[in-house]
Design a binder for these strands. Structure first.
Lengths: 370, 370
DNA sequence: CCCATAAATGACACCGGTTTCCTAATGGGG
DNA sequence: CCCCATTAGGAAACCGGTGTCATTTATGGG
């Protein structure tokens, strides 16, 4: 180490470690490193540009040549280097997922949907959990995008509703899609989920069952989804002649504990509601616990409805009537939208896209007693 | 488009879209594309190699020169291109996470731990959910590694226990770390979690409470963790003079439904167990439902213990005594191990690493009645 | 039979970093 | 005062692909 070389010897180590020996063109050929486009070109007796054409499906290649080259690629197991491709294309073929949503199932479902779309287009997904309350939040996000030069980013709520974060992405020139309950941005940058529909269905369901004394546990007002669910629920009840009195509404924090607190308030009030709609399943679980603690039988004495259709909805007993958001579709749509824009390199794709939530009736909702 | 150019015009589009104007060295300087190492070199009046030296913390740079260059980097917001670096280094600075575990919370926790380690080392994480039953399972995994030339892969159970998958990774020359309840591989490739400890603690807890008629719901025998939990539980009970009779053991599938089925069998048997240990929380939730259905009061008539400390453990009522696996630490350890090996480019780091599960006592476990 | 035209392919520079190898300046010892 | 070791920095090749443009080879019409 006379010069720059760092203490640690940097022995090059390829992608395929094993030594390959392949019979190509009646010649045995050996290589101790992953094959490159040059190897393919040499074996096929063509220039690397022609190999490049085959890889990129250029129509200007003789059918015979294409077959030969593909055969060689197959035989020696050549895979184009993503780094080199990325460098030349100015692309990384990487999408990012930024999330701070505490609902793990939701995140995993989104990931799955995103990856379904990615796979078809040859993209991969890089994840970035974050914390809006952290002082490094914006800087971390910026580094996240820059460090691997992401082609696009998908932002999950509630982070998706943070205008500063979006500004950072825009400044970086990074394409993004935000998931939210309302359209906060140009259509091209949004995939919205309709929470109004689910909430309205719940209102109709409760009305149809005959409930009149209905309690509502709202989500934190800074969340768009909470606002949407509340508004739609209240409006639909009103359409059915039911006025939700202010004292029958409590605002929770989308957490189990806040569900307990709100439920305690609602259930010790007179007249006691015969049904409670909690804005998410976590809080609905809190209502379950509170009801059981107070000796209130579910569903006989109290109908409960949640929102999200998270795993606990079916684990609780009786199983919880709730609203299902097709999270996987949401992820898929977002990724597709992003990929189209990246691939076409246009800012088109301005059509609005979204998914609709639907109610799932289970055992926790029945007509009121008497 | 006379020649190769694809129908879609491929207008180059950089990482930073906005046009920058920065005053450097008393000269105003404008650029409409992300700055490169060449820009930095030009502005600093040095060669790009010197800039490279600064970026890579080479000790052979004059302190003054270094300061100037760092200043310029700062001012124009230069970020080295990961593709170019990767191409030259033969590295991607990308780690992969392969999982088929249905427990979303577990996955999200692992991700978080992995990312904590990645952030410190400048790596990012690419995720790959998969399905061992799919015919494309192995091929998908292979493509996953090759497509972005991952530097290393972390495999989560149960996929981590698939020998074919590991063979694929090994053939690709891709470094990997497997997470499992037992060491299935060289120490360098494993991070193990000790499920025996947790299961033993549960056995001691139940024995100490005075339970003698104990039911056990095992996990699917093909899972190493299931085997470990079972063996440790049975052995520890025996140490306390309690023999787990065969008819008190049922094998479930780690699912809620199988928990119900097994619980039904156990609870309709005479003598009825006063305590049931389910090998995971999902199945424990199934036991709750069954007990409630059969009118058996928890914990008065039946003590229940689970394993995993998943979110439902605290959502159930009464809250579930269970065993916590520090999943985040698990992820962090795996990533650290991998990163050390990648960075040192040696196959060292052969020390065995792992985490230990511990029991968490909640409301569902009490002494037997009478 | 020749040339215009299109199809197929190659030469070469380039993407943005890194390595290798080389030169220039500096300072201390003989 | 000269020589050599040491430090600082540069030129050019390279990593593995891509774009541009020129060149070669068939084809068909006049």
């Amino acid at each position: 180490m006379t010069q720059d070389t760092q203490p640690k010897a940097r022995a090059r180590r390829g992608r395929a470690a094993g030594i390959q020996t392949v019979a190509v063109d009646a010649v045995t050929w050996t290589l101790d490193r992953p094959p490159t486009i040059n190897d393919v070109a040499r074996l096929a007796h063509v220039s690397k540009k022609t190999v490049s054409r085959v890889i990129n499906q250029s129509p200007f290649v003789n059918e015979e040549t294409r077959t030969i080259i593909n055969g060689i690629i197959e035989q020696i197991g050549y895979v184009p280097s993503p780094q080199a491709r990325g460098l030349a294309f100015q692309r990384s073929f990487l999408l990012g997922l930024v999330y701070d949503n505490p609902n793990a199932q939701f995140i995993v479902n989104i990931q799955e949907g995103v990856l379904a779309a990615c796979r078809l287009a040859g993209f991969e997904l890089v994840v970035h959990p974050c914390d809006q309350k952290s002082p490094h939040f914006l800087n971390d996000a910026k580094q996240f995008v820059q460090r691997q030069n992401l082609d696009g980013v998908i932002v999950v709520p509630p982070a998706s509703e943070n205008p500063q974060l979006v500004e950072v992405l825009r400044d970086l020139g990074c394409r993004y899609v935000r998931l939210s309950a309302v359209s906060l941005d140009e259509a091209a940058n949004m995939v919205v989920y309709n929470d109004r529909q689910g909430a309205a269905e719940v209102a109709e369901h409760l009305a149809a069952l005959g409930h009149r004394d209905i309690g509502f546990i709202a989500g934190p007002s800074r969340h768009r989804s909470a606002h949407e669910r509340r508004e739609s629920f209240v409006a639909t009840l009103k359409n059915h002649g039911i006025i939700l009195r202010p004292e029958m509404v409590e605002e929770g924090a989308y957490t189990f504990e806040s569900g307990e607190v709100c439920a305690t308030r609602l259930l010790t009030r007179e007249p006691r509601p015969t049904a409670i709609f909690a804005s998410n399943d976590e809080m609905a679980a809190g209502v379950y616990k509170t009801a059981q603690r107070l000796g209130i039988s579910i569903p006989r004495d109290l109908t409960i409805v949640g929102f999200d259709d998270s795993p606990i909805a079916t684990r609780l007993w009786p199983s919880l009537t709730t609203v299902r958001l097709p999270a996987k579709d949401l992820g898929r749509l977002a990724a597709e939208k992003l990929i189209i824009r990246i691939s076409s390199d246009e800012e088109e794709g301005h059509t609005a896209t979204g998914v609709v939530s639907r109610m799932v009736v289970r055992e926790s909702s029945v007509p009121p007693r008497g």
